[in-house]
Design a protein around this nucleic acid. Structure first.
Lengths: 216, 216
DNA sequence: TTCGTTACGTAACAGTGTTACTGAATCGAA
DNA sequence: TTCGATTCAGTAACACTGTTACGTAACGAA
């Protein structure tokens, strides 16, 4: 007795359509009916493949974390660990600006109906920090940062970065100090706060600035 | 010709009911019908008094900023301006933790239907930063902070604080470094990044910690 | 008292996520 | 090749949302 097999292509088609719907029309535009219409199927498909809109969004969020991790991993370690830390900051912000709507869903800044991430989902994104933790550890070994737990230092940098990106996407950072100005000031301030020398930080900053990847 | 007068008490009753509904059940629990039922009126009242759910939420947000400003203003200036900066950080976070749902609405971390703040609303909260700007300016005058624009420095501190509160309310900060640990580490890191000496910052930190107001 | 004016209740509309129910498509077994 | 069990997906409904047209009832000035 062999039942009708599930079509895996439909699941990925739903995910892709949901991603583009979210990117183009925002969280409010992502509804089951519009999603089904975009794929050319019925709303029921969402339930057979994902068990509800929540899980579909959850899958999108996981994909978003994977992409963030990939982007952070493209930052190569150099002799200047502090510049690496800053380059990771550039990568983090660039990824968020490339996928603003997805970022806001990933970090709860946009509610999709009554959607809420489970505890497991929040911890899922934790591995994303690893490249930053490594860079902080090397900066500490090189004597640029004060002795301390690299995980705590990296987490605090992530917190500050998230604050900037979150407020930037929300439209809160405007003249006289827009998001660009605040971000670059923040990078220097963060490494100085971690123990780096002010002039050394400035030198690493220009080095990191040269490495930043162009916007997609 | 004198028409039926509007009842101003109904508007405030709606606002109060909306605030408690938001606080107790979150953004998803704040609907026109439940709000009307809580006040003992009909959904139409929301439209005659506010012109829609959006404006009612907007009024709540403005009230939230006013309360934040009041809370920040309770921090008195002392001889230790850096401790004042840190005390303002404590006040900011305490206010957010006292009204978590409102904070998430104020900064776009929770969408109420298709509700979105207008540009004017985002700038409305700007005056809230003034106490922090003043404290930063005094810390700069006292030679604790590097020379620079106090507004930019204060704004970057606000950005970092918002990042922490936002992630804390989202449930992202857990073991091994929970929100308390991150927050206090961040306070010290922020003032160090602004130019303060590491040991002086530690001394100001213990002073500010003693001043923090108890949770409501 | 009368009458114009306006707030508010009722009920509807278009939308949402979700789910019985039903039909159709599929693949393995006979 | 035929058959039939099994599961996907489409239809239509449910309960819910914000919003609004309509009618009623209350109010205050004349």
């Amino acid at each position: 007795m062999s039942p009708r097999r599930i079509d895996p292509k439909l699941a990925t088609a739903l995910l892709e359509a949901a991603a583009s719907l979210l990117a183009e029309e925002g969280a409010a535009g992502l509804t089951t009916r519009r999603l089904a219409a975009a794929v050319g199927t019925s709303t029921t498909a969402v339930y057979t493949h994902f068990g509800g809109m929540d899980n579909l969004v959850r899958a999108m969020v996981h994909e978003g974390f994977a992409r963030l991790h990939r982007r952070m991993s493209t930052v190569r370690a150099t002799a200047d660990a502090v510049a690496d830390v800053m380059a990771l900051g550039y990568a983090y912000r660039a990824n968020a600006l490339d996928h603003p709507q997805l970022y806001q869903v990933m970090f709860g800044s946009a509610a999709l109906g009554g959607f809420a991430l489970a505890d497991g989902d929040r911890q899922h994104g934790r591995y994303t920090l690893q490249p930053l933790v490594d860079a902080v550890a090397r900066a500490t070994e090189q004597g640029r940062f004060r002795a301390g737990d690299p995980l705590l230092v990296a987490q605090n940098m992530w917190i500050a970065l998230h604050g900037l990106v979150s407020l930037e996407l929300g439209g809160y950072l405007i003249d006289p100090y827009d998001a660009d100005v605040c971000f670059e000031a923040q990078l220097r301030s963060l490494v100085t706060g971690a123990g780096d020398d002010h002039e050394a930080a400035a030198a690493s900053f220009t080095r990191a600035r040269r490495r930043r990847s162009p916007r997609a």
